[in-house]
Simulated assay, not measured.
Amino acid sequence: MTIHPTDHLDTDGQEVRRYLDAVEQAVSGLPAHRRKETVGDVAERIAVALAGRPGRITQILAELGAPEQIGAAAVDAYRADVQVPWWSSPRLIVWGLAAGSAVSLLSRLTADDEIPEIFALPVFYLTFCGCVALCLSPWWSRSRRCLALAWLLVPNLFLALAMGATDSLAVQITLSVVSVAVRAGALWWMWSCRTAPEPDRHRFPRWAGVLSWIAVAAVAAGETVLWAVTL
């Protein structure tokens, strides 16, 4: 049986392809351009090494390290480039908004008239802070943030108007359940369509950030005062 040189080259190419596929899988959590950059850099290093040491693909790949190690290093480097504040975490935002919806529903289902007033402030803080964090979070594009806010807030507006127009407890409960279901769907959609933040993505100037937080604090303080007076 005759072994042709091209057979060896084909085997090397298949091994390199499998290695690069494994690297791409290891960095699947990064944005598309960053994945392409990482895989391209590894492919270039392999090509340079093979040019100097043809036929030593196994040794070259061993020197580069396991694809999982390369992927972990790339993810760590990416996170070092992107400074993401803790309050912009998708998990924190989604769970905060979900908690606000759950508390709001429970307060509406109670027969005691004082219960909704007691829970009004926690519901406000959970919903308001969650929406503000959503607006400033780099985990969603601008269009998706606007769409999520619309699905979170508009149903509540119609719910408040509808509940004020009827005295039927059954209708009020039905409207509350429908509103919470819509918000749950919006929250699920938010979680499923989140994307890894990119460096300098939607970053505000420092003065704009300071003014935004001053406005948020003023609104929160005013709502707290109104809640205390109502009680």
Score class of each variant (00 low, 15 high):
T2R: 13
T2F: 13
I3M: 03
H4Y: 09
H4R: 07
P5A: 09
T6N: 06
T11Q: 06
Q14H: 13
R17K: 10
A26T: 13
V27C: 03
L30A: 08
L30I: 05
P31N: 01
A32C: 01
A32E: 08
K36I: 02
E37R: 11
T38P: 05
G40Q: 08
A43H: 08
E44S: 15
I46D: 06
A47C: 00
A51K: 14
G52M: 05
G52A: 13
P54C: 01
P54E: 07
R56L: 03
Q59W: 01
Q59T: 11
L61F: 14
A62R: 15
Q69D: 11
Q69V: 07
I70G: 07
V75R: 10
V82A: 05
V84M: 04
W87L: 14
P90L: 11
I93V: 15
V94N: 08
G100K: 09
V103W: 01
L105M: 13
L105C: 06
S107W: 02
E114V: 13
P116N: 10
I118W: 10
F119T: 12
L121V: 12
L121E: 07
P122R: 03
V123H: 05
F124Q: 13
F124A: 12
Y125P: 01
L126H: 12
T127W: 00
F128R: 07
C129T: 11
C131E: 12
A133K: 10
A133S: 15
C135N: 10
C135D: 09
W140H: 15
W140N: 14
S141F: 04
S143F: 06
C146T: 15
A148P: 01
L149C: 08
L161T: 09
M163A: 13
M163Y: 02
G164M: 10
G164T: 10
A165L: 14
A165W: 06
V171T: 11
Q172W: 04
T174M: 09
L175T: 06
L175Y: 08
S176I: 05
V177D: 05
V180P: 01
V182Y: 02
G185C: 03
W189D: 09
W189V: 09
W189T: 13
W189E: 10
S192V: 08
C193G: 01
C193A: 08
R194Q: 11
T195S: 09
T195H: 03
A196D: 00
A196E: 08
P197V: 04
P199N: 03
P199V: 04
D200L: 11
H202A: 15
R203V: 15
R206V: 14
R206P: 00
R206Q: 14
W207N: 03
A208Q: 13
G209E: 07
V210M: 12
I214M: 13
V216Y: 05
V216T: 15
A217E: 01
A218G: 11
V219P: 04
A220S: 15
A220R: 02
G222S: 09
G222W: 00
E223A: 14
T224E: 00
T224Y: 00
L226W: 02
L226M: 08
V229M: 08
L231A: 12
L231V: 10
